[in-house]
Write a protein that binds this DNA or RNA. Structure first.
Lengths: 157, 157
DNA sequence: TTTCTTGCAAATTCTTTGCAGATTA
DNA sequence: TAATCTGCAAAGAATTTGCAAGAAA
């Protein structure tokens, strides 16, 4: 995402969101956020770290980690797949879809005729062969919505 | 997936697929595969390991890792999100979708009006509040399809 | 100020590898 | 038997944590 106008407006909303939740808008947080929204490459932690270091050479890797989780918790950025680190497997090869809680990482399966019937855009066919299609819905599950102020608990399954 | 009939037929296809690619159908591989397809919980490596140990107490964690990657390469099982270990972030909050190569882990973004307009099933609304929806298409990208016999290279971004 | 954050370094946790003995085809 | 696998143990990555010094409100 490279539109300067849009970036500016997201940075403004970012400051507000931090203020609202009583979290400080530090230089590091601003730059880490800017780095992620400015990239189209779905960067990993290490990549974000390298990018931010160009502007803040003294930034530490653990601050990058802490900040990314914070942004994720606040819903300011997203992850590919479930948010937690470990790989998780799915042995179900029949068509099905997922609802993923971004707080606890729980994954709910569901089926939907409408979702199964999606046509693959020709743009995508040019990139490679598509073998599976899943819809991934993300949000916060009922259980997590209740216990609002809990620490970001890591899913262990 | 608990239908015994279906499990049997998948195990049979599993043996064939292994034979076809000149890979041995060992006891461990059978049981690891069975464990994954028999679970609805999108298990992590550790969970699969614990499950398999109930039947093969001497199995080692590294065999579980090696086997899961093997099954994944062969397309016999799937992962949630991109297959490689590291978390990857996405700062793009505008509606968009992904095509993910299951070999190299590259992720291509695309937009699609039809995909954006999917209605959230009421079943899902009962589980929690949905904030984002992405379609995830998975397959093998053009680049990876060429170099067929390359080792499973890990994406580093 | 007062409270929250950072950077450092050390600790964990997760994943991969080399190799000799065990197993499959 | 020949070619692959497995288990072990040790290495290598990735991620998290405690704490004193530093920065924001």
């Amino acid at each position: 995402m490279h539109n300067p106008q849009e970036i500016r407006s997201r940075l403004a909303r970012f400051r507000e969101e931090l203020k609202r939740s009583g979290v400080k808008a530090t230089h590091q947080r601003l730059e880490i956020f800017r780095e992620v929204i400015g990239s189209d490459e779905h960067p990993g932690v290490e990549t974000v770290y390298r990018g931010v270091r160009r502007r803040i050479p003294s930034v530490s890797l653990d601050t990058v980690y802490r900040t990314l989780w914070l942004l994720l918790q606040r819903g300011l950025i997203d992850t590919l797949g479930p948010s937690h680190n470990r790989v998780r497997f799915d042995g179900n090869v029949r068509p099905h879809h997922h609802f993923i809680c971004r707080r606890c990482g729980r994954v709910f399966d569901f089926t939907s005729r409408a979702f199964d019937e999606l046509a693959v855009p020709s743009e995508v066919k040019a990139w490679g062969s598509v073998e599976r299609a899943h819809v991934e819905l993300k949000g916060v599950c009922g259980r997590c919505r209740e216990k609002k102020n809990d620490p970001f608990l890591k899913n262990k399954s």
